[in-house]
Structure formats: C-alpha cells, structure tokens
Amino acid sequence: MDLQTLVKLTVGATLLTCVLAVVGVHVYARGRAQRAALVDRLTAAGQVPYTGRRRHFRDLDRRLRRTRLGRELELRLAATGLDVTPGEFFAAMIGLVGGLWLIGQAALAPFFGPLAGLAGVWAAVQFLNWQRQKRIEKFINQLPELARILANATHAGLALRTAIGMAAEELEAPAGEELANVANQLAVGVPMEDALDEMAKRLPSRELVVLVTTLVLSNRAGGQVVSALRNLTETLEERKETRREVRTQLSQVNMTSYAVPVLGIGSLFLMNGVKDGALERMTGSPLGQGAVIIAFALYTVGFVLIRRMSRIDV
C-alpha cells in the first residue's frame, strides 16, 4: 500500500468519524429533549415528583412497585414528602435490619439478633409515620394562611382554580407542593373534587377535610365561598392554638412512652456488662427465651397503652 492510498484512507476514516460523532451528538441531544418533555408532562400530571437526582436500586424499585407492598410503600413515601423511591427505602431498611441483627447478636447474644432485626423493621415503619405526621402537622399550621389566601383571591373575582394556583406559588412546602400537584391535575382535566380528595387522602386531618369539603361544595353549588373561607380561617386559627397547647401539655407523657422501652433495652446491656455472657446463658434455654419474649411484649404493651391514653383528638 503506497503513501497516497494510506493518506486517503486516513482522511476518509477521519471524515467518517466526524460524521458519526455529529450524528451521535444529534441523537443524544434529541433523546435528552424527548426525555425532558416526557418528564415535564408527567410532572404536570402530578405523577412524577422529578428532582433530577440519580435513582439507585432501579431494578428492585420496578419489581417492588408491581407488588401490593410496594404500592402501599409508595403511597406512604408520597405522604412523607421524602425524595426516596420505594426501592431505595426498602434497600435501606434491609441494611438497617441486617446491621441491627449483627449488633444484637454480637453485643448481647445470638438470640437477640432476630429481635433486633424486628426492631429495625419497626423503627423504619415508625420513621415513615413520624415523617408523615410531621408533614401533616406542618400542613395543618399552614391551613389558616391557605384559607385566607383563597378567600382574598376569590373575593377579588378570581376563579377557585386560579386561586389554588396562586396559593401554591405563595405558600412554602408542604402546602405549596400539595397545591401545586392539585393545580397540575386541574390543568390536565382532573375534576376538582377528585384532585382535592386525593390531597386529603395523602395528608389526612380533620382540618383539611373541612377545607376540602368547603371548597368542593362551594365549587359545586356556587355558594358564598368568600364568607365560608373567612369563617373557616378563624376556626382554623383557634384550632391551631388549641392543638399547640395540647401538644405542650402532653410532651412529658410522650417522652415517658419512649423512655419505657429504652429502659428495658438498657437493662439488658447493664446485665451483660455486669457479668459477661449472662444473657447468652439465660437465652440458652427455652424458659429464658420465653421470659425475654414476654418481657419485650410487656414493654411493647406499655408503650402502646401510654400512647393511647395520652392521645387527645382536637
């Protein structure tokens, strides 16, 4: 092969590489644009809370969403407002259960490994409930301001759909996020009653149910929505102060409910620290294992009873 032929081949390969590179960049840019458009449509429909964060455990997440447990977990996570997929949360829970299992088995006795794993599952569920309740409480505290904004907007002659969009822009999370979802659903043709009912299911509370009922009836029957919202604003302000006082009065009782199981677990470490291997010998017989299980059951019953007796519905 002479030099001239080699030069022609080199130039041709270079040109072909450049053409393929341009085509590749064009296809990549078009794919990115199509993906962004799809995300915008799904986000507008309230189906995908897109944040741009890279998701982990995608295969696990897809398989988990096909199950009933995965769908219920997805609803719970949506109510908490956490930017976590069901697959990510399930993987984190499995890691927590495995870690607690090993710690309980190594620090106390092999018998306490499964019990520590069950405690990990309970802790994960309680974490979701705590996050959900915290978001509900924050949303309830924003309801008086939300009702005030809706009343002022409707008094100015704006439609209720427009008033909801304005409130979504002015309020912070979680009320702003939830109202933005409602506004997006209304924009794609979802009935207002369905959109508001879905929001009430995500964040269940008596105050939100009253507000949703007022908005739905006013939108359906065309009543005096302004006066109803202003009266509701005053009622929500009073309930907000009452809830704050009740929560302050019950703070000591709530701390006692958590202190009871902590004292029980602490006594186990104290026993094992006083005499090394005491727990292993105690749980080596069926009688000792039964005594430990009964003790844990009693601590659980005490925790639940204290929480039940200190619960006051306002």
Rank of each mutant, 00 (worst) to 15 (best):
R202D: 15
E137V: 06
P204V: 02
V125H: 11
G223F: 08
A106H: 08
V225P: 10
L211Q: 10
G223E: 12
K134S: 15
G120S: 00
A167M: 02
A173H: 07
G176R: 01
A151N: 05
L146W: 04
G104D: 08
S227I: 05
A187G: 14
L146G: 03
D194M: 08
A106V: 12
L146I: 07
V209T: 14
T214P: 10
E198N: 12
F127Q: 15
P110V: 01
A159H: 13
V190Y: 03
E198K: 07
K201C: 05
T213D: 14
G120P: 06
V190M: 01
L186T: 04
G117T: 00
Q131L: 08
Q133N: 14
Q185L: 00
A195R: 05
H155I: 01
E145K: 15
M192Y: 03
G222V: 00
R220M: 09
W122S: 13
V209S: 13
A187S: 15
A116W: 02
E170M: 10
V182F: 06
M199G: 13
S218N: 06
A119L: 08
T154S: 06
D194I: 06
G157S: 09
T154I: 01
P204E: 04
N219K: 06
A200E: 08
L179S: 06
Q105K: 11
L108W: 09
L108S: 13
A183W: 07
G104Q: 07
K201F: 07
R206D: 14
G104N: 04
G222P: 03
Q133R: 12
V225T: 14
Q131F: 07
V225R: 03
R148A: 09
